[in-house]
Amino acid sequence: MPRRTAAALAAVVLSTGLVAAPQVSASAAGDSCISKKEYRKVKQGMTRPQVKQVTGTNGKSLGRAEASQDYIIEKRRYRVCTSRKGAAELGFVSVMGGPYKLTRKTVDWR
Rank of each mutant, 00 (worst) to 15 (best):
G30I: 09
Y39C: 05
G97A: 12
P49H: 02
R110D: 10
L90Y: 14
S35C: 13
T82E: 08
E38D: 13
E38Q: 06
S27T: 12
A28P: 07
G63E: 10
G59Q: 00
V54F: 00
K36T: 02
V107R: 03
D108S: 15
N58Y: 08
R104Y: 15
V24R: 03
L102H: 06
S35W: 14
L102Q: 12
M1Y: 04
E38H: 07
S27R: 11
D31M: 15
K85R: 15
V80D: 04
L9G: 01
W109R: 03
S35K: 07
D108H: 11
R64T: 12
T106N: 15
K43M: 06
G56H: 05
L90F: 15
P2N: 07
K41W: 09
Y78F: 15
T82D: 10
R3C: 05
K101H: 06
L18R: 02
A29Y: 04
Y100W: 15
T82A: 07
L62S: 10
T82K: 01
S25F: 04
C81P: 12
P99M: 14
L9F: 00
R3T: 11
A11V: 00
I72V: 15
M1N: 01
S61M: 03
A29C: 09
V24T: 08
L62R: 10
K75N: 12
K37A: 13
R48L: 08
G98K: 02
A8Q: 06
R40C: 05
A29H: 03
T82V: 08
A67D: 14
A87L: 10
M46H: 05
T55V: 01
R79F: 05
V93C: 09
G17T: 04
K105Q: 11
A88G: 06
A21W: 06
R76Y: 03
I72W: 15
R84P: 08
G63C: 07
S68M: 00
A87H: 10
S27E: 10
R84A: 15
Q69W: 06
R76P: 05
K105H: 10
A8M: 02
R110N: 07
R64N: 13
Y100M: 13
L102W: 08
G59C: 00
R104G: 14
A28W: 14
R3Q: 13
R84M: 11
